[in-house]
Structure formats: C-alpha cells, structure tokens
Design a protein around this nucleic acid. Structure first.
Lengths: 240, 240
DNA sequence: CTATAAAATTTTATCGATAAAAGTCAACAA
DNA sequence: TTGTTGACTTTTATCGATAAAATTTTATAG
C-alpha cells in the first residue's frame, strides 16, 4: 500500500471515486480531462484509464467520442440498485449461512466489534477517527457477512452495488442527522440474527437494512423487499 | 457503425473479445502489449484501454504492474456463472412476465423467427450465414425475453454473464457436434412457455436451459437450478 | 554446487505532442 | 427573423518516446 507501489491509475481511481461519492463532483457534471489533469496533477493517460474503469463500475458514464461525465442519480436508479442488491445479497447470505464456519463467525464478531468501538470513540469526540473510518468499518462488516458465500461473483456484484449505494447514502448524509447508537443497534441485531443462524430473520433484517438507504433518501419510495413470508417493520431508521 | 465512426479502443475490445471467446487467445495466456500491437496493428493506448475494459467484463484479468492475461477457466467458475445467471435471469424473467406488453411479445416472436430462419438456412447449407449469425440471433432472443424487465441493472448483469458463458460454450463447440433442430426446439418451447405467461414453466425451462451450458461442458457437474417446486427433466440436450 | 547479488533485459506505466472529431458561433442568404 | 454554411475553438483519441518497475540472467562468494 505504500505510495510508491501504486500506479497513478490506481490513485486516480481512488480520488475520483472519493470525489464522486462525496459529491465534490456532482452528478451529470462533465469530466474534462484537462481540468482533471490540473486538479489531480497527473497526465491524461492514467485519468482516462481511471475514468474507463469507473464507468464499468457505474460511477461515470462514457459517451463514445464525447468524453466522460459523472453518472446521474435518480430515485429509479436507487430503486434499481436496491432491488438487485436484495436479490443478490440475500442469496449470498443464505449461502454464507449454510456454509459459514467458526472462522467466519469470528470475522463477523471482529468486524462488528470494530464498528462498535469506532462509534464509541467518535461519540466521545476526541480522536482522529472520523466518518470515513466508520464507513470503512461498515463496509468491512457487510463484507464479513458474506465472506463464507461460495460465489465469487455474488460477492463481487454486492461490492459494486454497495459502492453505488454509498453514493446515495453520502448525498443523503448532508441532509439527515445521524444517530450513531441506532446505527450500531441495527447492526448488532443483524449480527445476532446471522450468528444465531436464523435464516428467515437474518434475511428479513438484511432486506430491511438495504431498504433503509432507499427510504432515507426517498422517503416515499416503495420498499423493494419481497424476500420472505414473515412481515417486517418498515419504519425508517438510518441508512444501510 | 461505419468503421470511421468507431474508436480504435472499441475495435480493440471487439477483436480481443472475439479472439478470447473463440479460444485464439487461450485461458491464462499472457497478453503482451507489444505482441498485441503487432497482431492488431494499433498503438499501445487503445489496447491498454481495451484490456482494462475487458477485465471489468471478466474476460481478462489485470495484475497491477504485471500486465494482463486471459481469464482462467474452470468448472467452478462456470458453476459460479451459472448460479448467478439463474438467480438474476429468473428474477428478471418474472419481472418481464409481469410487465411485458404486446410489443414485447412481438419482439420475442421476431427474434425467434429470425433464429428459426437462420437455422433453416444454415441447415440447407447454401448461404453465407454461419455460426456467428446464429449466435447473434441466440443472443438477441435471450435479450428479447428480458426486454420488458424494468431493471436496467439486471439486464446488464445478464448480458455480461451471457458473454462469460459464451466463452465456455465456444470452447465446448470444438468437441461436441450440434443438433440444430434440437437447438431450435428448445427455444421454441421456451418462447411458448413465456408467451403463454406460465411463470412456473417459463422459469423452469429457462433454468434448465442455463444449466445446459454447464452440463455440456462439464457433464458430471451438479445442476445449479433451485428455482421452482416443479421437478424438471435434466437430460442434456444442447448448450444454452 | 548452491545461494546471493548485481547487471541486463523485458515489460509496463506514464507523459507530452499531435491529429481527428465534435461543438460553437458568426456571417450570410432566404 | 430563421436556417444553413463554414471557419474557429474546444475536446477527445491516439501515437511514439521515455521512465520506472519487474523479471531473468549472469557472475561471484560461500
């Protein structure tokens, strides 16, 4: 991970993603290579390649011969993301529940402990830990849930969709205030449902969790979940 | 589509895909930029960009600072592809069945008619139409099935997975002989099940169809389908 | 003969410059 | 005024060269 061991393209991907997710580069904004060269202080080649990669990741759209722009956002788009997330992520969770061993459980516990710890530190206020670390811990926890899923591709698709949803979560953050305790609580429940190997409850919790991003950003959107027979509460808490 | 209106990168993506799918570039083969420059008679930049795109499409793997190679193939990989295909494609089909209108049906009929016609022409022997046209018609038919699916992303994922599976189908073609009539018959049944709006049957047929690629290439592989309650025949016919 | 280190080679990653295409604007004709 | 043509500007796509990194080979010491 040392700076010298990374290519400029990798750095460009990272910085561009960050700026897009954080809304510095706003949806539909045209991405002029010339401007980006200035902003990130690098040549055109790594930027082009980075943009090309980001477009297959859904952050950027490439118009042949017409350059790049930041991907648009819309309620329909987030609904689409949420729907596919639920489809793939629940299937992956079922698989992980069936296949997960002790080590998998330890990974989940460790990831949750870290999330919990970070939340406490942030709440206390004194620490350099910030929203970015919490976000990273959140991502790691969700990754840990599916670590035992045998499908490489499901995990990959999940990861990409997570990032796409992250953009919406971030945009929403600017409006809504966070309740850290509730955030941790929701994940505690998820972790407990998963570790207790209660498939129905775990899937319901996860589906609901995924709906939360959608509902937080577009409160009147229809929930996408259609996962299980059990009814579930649909009140909005915090984003997924 | 005129040659002048396409960028070299687009041409490179197309030719590289074709060569990878057709096995000219064999799995795990290292892709030296210098060699590719010769072979395709273009500069390094469009090739690099093409390889980068293909790697997000799963045809090529990129090792940071270590160049590119053709993605490996394995039975596990095809099982993984098949599983995700079934998950996503069946969900998309259900959606299309619920939402599809008359125009959608017409699209399916037209695509099937074309497939049928091409098969007849090919069987008759005299015509310039070849396997490539049939493959294109096959792709179009499957695309037509899901044209009414409201999820942009599901259609996208399906399309990528179709291409990945296509590579295995092609590799298998070299061993197995084709039965054109059976190929058309299978699709006729699929089309009928879909147009009759029989969800259970349509889903079963499609799931079975997807399993066929897997079973054709690896005859002793376990079928991935777990879609419906109805039991289905599992005899091998022709690849999906 | 093996293991390490240095040199040589191969290969990738990046840059700066140029050519080609698209988009813009103004002049002119209807 | 409105529409169309053509020059002008902006922007992308591509190339060839170079720098940086990794790999392989060779040489040398133990």
């Amino acid at each position: 991970m040392s700076d010298t061991a990374r290519t400029l393209t990798e750095i460009a991907v990272e910085r561009l993603s960050a700026d897009i997710v954080n809304g510095v580069l706003v949806p539909e904004q045209k991405l002029l290579i010339a401007e980006l060269k200035e902003r990130y202080d690098m040549g055109a080649s790594p930027l082009r390649e980075a943009l090309s990669q980001l477009s297959s990741q859904g952050f950027v759209v490439a118009d042949s011969r017409r350059g790049f722009r930041v991907a648009a956002i819309s309620r329909e788009d987030l609904e689409d993301i949420t729907r596919l997330r639920q489809l793939v992520e629940l299937a992956a969770l079922r698989d992980a529940l069936a296949a997960g061993d002790h080590e998998w459980e330890l990974g989940i516990r460790a990831a949750f402990a870290r999330l919990e710890g970070l939340a406490a530190v942030i709440k206390a206020g004194r620490s350099s830990a910030g929203a970015h670390d919490l976000e990273q811990a959140h991502r790691n926890l969700h990754e840990a849930f599916l670590a035992a899923c045998s499908s490489q591709r499901m995990r990959m698709v999940r990861s990409i969709l997570y990032d796409q949803a992250q953009r919406y979560r971030q945009l929403m953050l600017q409006k809504t205030s966070q309740d850290l305790d509730e955030f941790v609580d929701i994940h505690r429940q998820l972790v407990e449902a998963i570790l207790s190997r209660n498939q129905a409850q775990a899937c319901d919790s996860l589906a609901e969790h995924l709906d939360l991003t959608l509902l937080s950003v577009y409160p009147d959107a229809p929930a996408q979940a259609e996962t299980s027979k059990t009814s579930r509460s649909t009140r909005v808490r915090r984003q997924a």
